[in-house]
């Protein structure tokens, strides 16, 4: 299980290969990649900066992975989240979950991402033709995380 917060880009294939290496129990790997779009709330986005709360970020994502491990049979999990300045088409976040079977892998990957969106302390500030603005949290993200509370 691993959590990395970094400015640098990531190589999904290399990360998955590293996770698979020497672990013959793995039968399914699900991954999610979040990418910067060039539009948000109807405005063109030319750039964004991601701020976070060092320490709490790693701790909160670690806790989310622990919750996922309590619900599904997770053999390994990796979350990489970028911070700093990003532009459209840049990768922002990678979640990789390795399990014995696909059902657990798909569910745990989606769960980690839904919780990361609503609990991990990151904030986006985007640059549009109207100037720079802090991105507002979305109610739909709260609803997505709420689906898992049962």
């Amino acid at each position: 299980m691993s959590v990395r917060i970094q400015e640098a880009d990531f190589d999904t294939a290399a990360e998955i290969a590293a996770m698979r290496r020497g672990n013959p129990k793995i039968g399914a790997i699900a991954s999610f990649i979040g990418v910067v779009r060039d539009i948000n709330d109807g405005d063109a986005v030319s750039m964004m900066t991601l701020e976070h709360y060092p320490g709490m970020t790693e701790r909160s994502i670690g806790a989310i992975i622990d919750q996922a491990r309590g619900r599904w049979e997770v053999l390994d999990a990796l979350v990489i989240h970028r911070v700093g300045t990003l532009k459209p088409t840049d990768q922002i976040v990678l979640v990789v979950v390795a399990c014995s079977h696909r059902g657990d892998a798909f569910a745990a990957c989606e769960f980690i991402m839904d919780y990361l969106k609503t609990q991990a302390p990151f904030w986006k500030k985007e640059v549009t033709p109207q100037g720079a603005r802090w991105v507002d949290a979305r109610a739909s993200d709260d609803e997505a995380a709420g689906r898992w509370r049962n």
Partner: peptide, 26 residues
């Protein structure tokens, strides 16, 4: 102390208390 907390959370000496807007990562 780096864990999300509600309004009734007690405070004590040495605590690290953070205030921030709803998060927007991912």
């Amino acid at each position: 102390n780096q864990t999300l907390a509600q309004g009734d959370a007690p405070l004590k000496a040495g605590d690290e208390v953070a205030f921030f807007p709803p998060v927007t990562g991912g």
